[in-house]
Amino acid sequence: MSTYIGFLYKEIIEGLRTKKFLIISVGFIFFALADPVLLKLTPEILKSQAKGMDFSKWIDISQKAAILKFTDDLYQIVSLIIVLTLVGIISSEIKNKTFVFPFSVGSKINGIVLSKFTVYSIFIIVLTQISIYINFVYSKLIFEDSNFYFLHVVRIGIFYGVFFVFLVSLIILFSSFLKNSIVSALCVLGIVYIMPILNNFSDIGKYLPGNVLSIAKKYNNSISKTDIISLTIIFVLIIIFNYVAYRNLSDVEL
């Protein structure tokens, strides 16, 4: 427990001083604000390119479209920002030998893994909620057609939050056994971007972690049996990834 508390303190300072919190926050907030504006301006931009054509009939220009556009960016771009920011979360500490002193005073590996997971998971969950509410409120101001229910936004926030927690655990896993951060980032991004493809092509896809993104976007408040299985699997995977990271680190010579 003392290791966990010590490393919570360290991770928070690190997040602030190394600007990790700031970089990730900028990623979330930028798209939360930029997506509604860009969507609103899209017909005008296209109109100037092809005079006389009314693009507003072809493109959905609404609050709902703005929120869905934001969720797409969360998955495609913000995931990338998170991966690139956190990719050396463990490997850089091994490489830089910064674990030596904490270990020499009795740090426990499980406390280290868990504290890193806790800090970044909580931070990203909170940020997901905040950014989706910002996006919701801002798009409501911009678009006349503002009939998107707040509960749907909450739903999106929760499920995207779960997905990002899964992403953090995946980063921790790869960072625990791959010394090279670039390789580690490519592996994580490969898995993240391949998930929706699997989702489209096979039934198994419904049970893969990427399915929570589809669940999030469902325009109703019900959760099916498949959704529950999918969520259970994602939680089990989060636990397994953290445990495997702990086992990997236990075998590493610092």
């Binding site: 003392s2 290791t3 360290k10 300072i13 190394t18 030596v100 002193f101 020499s104 005073v105 740090s107």
Partner: peptide, 29 residues
């Protein structure tokens, strides 16, 4: 009950001595 100074001591460079010793103290409960 052992203390260790490695050949090249590595710290979290963004921390101050006060913060680092506080961090070590937290680990030591």
């Amino acid at each position: 009950n052992l203390g260790y100074l490695p050949e090249e001591p590595r710290f979290y460079n963004y921390m101050t001595p006060k913060e680092y010793l506080y961090f070590i103290g937290k680990i030591c409960n």
